[in-house]
């Protein structure tokens, strides 16, 4: 007799899997498989802790804890009630709005205090107790910058592996570079106002690479990419970006651990 596999039994437990009747029939006549199913069931009956209850004001408190650094979307609030489209058009507009919002958040954070200082490894990081809104603001900036660095890293990895790329992936690369350029420019400008030469240099280097990729001719082929990669030293840029990414993650974690529960 061919026994049921663990996978079949786990699927059966979750009420999935083809051939339910066959599985059930087998289970009725086979004590071995029945025992395995019992094991699975026993293990899955063990539950972790239930989420602690939140009181009725939880949602409001949550909103208060995050709302300060959020910039309103530009637009006339009164118009919203009259205009309605099934879906928003895919134009560059939302990303411009987003970029603008990011810049405002960045600028606010940079100019309001020593955020950039805290992005650097700081011996007394834990002792540096800021007010709650400033912490949230800091986390917003870290999230924004972290995202941008993530995205840059992905692009550079793709670029560095583009030797074997198809024309479609080259196209996608170019589109991504075009999308990232305005963001990168905003971040670079905001950051160059602070004195962080490493980050400024990396973003500056990144901007030149993005420009090169974004403005490449329609027929950008893998050879061109190899040339960009070589001339612009993208390997070393990738390394820099990874180091900076680790730094923002570290600062993000430090910022989060300073933050109490809301």
């Amino acid at each position: 007799m061919k026994h049921l596999t663990d996978e079949q039994l786990i699927e059966h437990y979750f009420g999935e899997g083809a051939n339910r009747v066959m599985v059930e029939t087998h289970l009725r006549i086979c004590s071995r498989c029945e025992q395995v199913l019992e094991d699975i069931t026993s293990a899955l009956e063990v539950r972790g802790p239930e989420p602690p209850a939140r009181d009725a004001q939880y949602g409001d408190r949550l909103w208060q804890s995050i709302q300060a650094p959020l910039t309103p979307y530009p637009g006339d609030p009164r118009r919203a009630r009259f205009s309605w489209r099934i879906s928003w058009p895919r134009t560059p507009w939302p990303s411009l709005v987003l970029a603008g919002a990011c810049l405002l958040a960045l600028a606010a954070a940079f100019f309001s205090g020593s955020l950039w200082e805290r992005l650097r490894p700081h011996p007394n990081q834990a002792a540096n107790s800021a007010q709650a809104p400033a912490q949230v603001k800091e986390r917003v900036v870290l999230v924004i910058l972290g995202d941008h660095l993530d995205r840059s890293e992905r692009l550079l990895v793709q670029l560095n592996h583009a030797g074997a790329a198809t024309p479609q992936s080259v196209d996608a690369l170019r589109a991504e570079a075009r999308q990232m350029l305005p963001d990168n420019r905003l971040y670079r400008q905001a950051i160059s106002a602070q004195s962080d030469p490493t980050m400024t240099a990396a973003l500056d280097h990144l901007e030149r690479v993005l420009l090169e990729v974004a403005n490449a001719p329609d027929q950008l082929d893998p050879d061109d990419i190899a040339r960009i990669e070589h001339e612009m030293n993208t390997d070393s840029l990738l390394f820099q970006i990874r180091v900076l990414r680790a730094r923002t993650t570290q600062a993000q974690t430090a910022s989060a651990s300073r933050k109490g529960s809301i």
Partner: peptide, 20 residues
């Protein structure tokens, strides 16, 4: 729609509604 039209507080309603 209200949030995207510039009414930031409308987002607060969404946060309160789905936070828990």
């Amino acid at each position: 729609r209200q949030v995207l039209a510039g009414d930031k507080d409308a987002y607060g309603v969404l946060v309160s509604r789905h936070g828990e």
